[in-house]
Amino acid sequence: MLDAILGATLRSLAVSAIATLLAALLGIPLGTYLGMRKMHGRRFLKSLIYTFYGFPPVVAGLLIYLLLSSSGPFGFMHLLFTLPAMILAEFLLAFPLVLGITMMSVSSIRTEVRDAIRVLGVSRRQEVMLYLREAKNGILAGVMVGFGSAISEVGAAMMVGGGIVGETNVLTTDIMVHTRMGNFEYAIVLALILLALCFAIYFVLARLEDAGDE
């Protein structure tokens, strides 16, 4: 039983960490880029990104299921009911959050600061660095929210992962299955582990947030 709990915990962690990492790798640069530039149609783009803040997990699940299903366009890859499929679904949920919040915090850097940076006459490289330093906490918040949405999600994880025991079951899907079976005690243990895990991760990230402020 300990093995089962450990497995589900590790899979939960791996799926949401990789999904968040991918979302950060794509979302932070893109968000910074969009936040730094003034361009046409930015308000429209912003609204579009914000719309996906509320992207329902089951819709993400349905989308990935239909894409990866044997009779879907990517069925030949045989990715349905595997961890990569789950990572893809969680990525879809975390990416708009990371992208949008990064963009928001970069673009909300005060005009005086922007002017000061411009007046300094620094190189492009230094300019990007200064912008990132200014927006650091906001970007970090984006990553945290993205991770939170990925690790706490159950609908999409169940739909594209299938909750196969020892293969694709994660903490949230296990909590659902065991609640359905009436094993409340087991479900509660898993829920506590999930909460403790989130606390530990956010504790480390909060230190990162403070690190640059001294």
Binding site: L25, P29, T32, Y33, R125, V128, M129, L132
Partner: peptide, 9 residues
């Protein structure tokens, strides 16, 4: 930061 810089530049 290096990664973001390279990507953006």
């Amino acid at each position: 930061t290096r990664y973001v810089y390279i990507f953006i530049s």
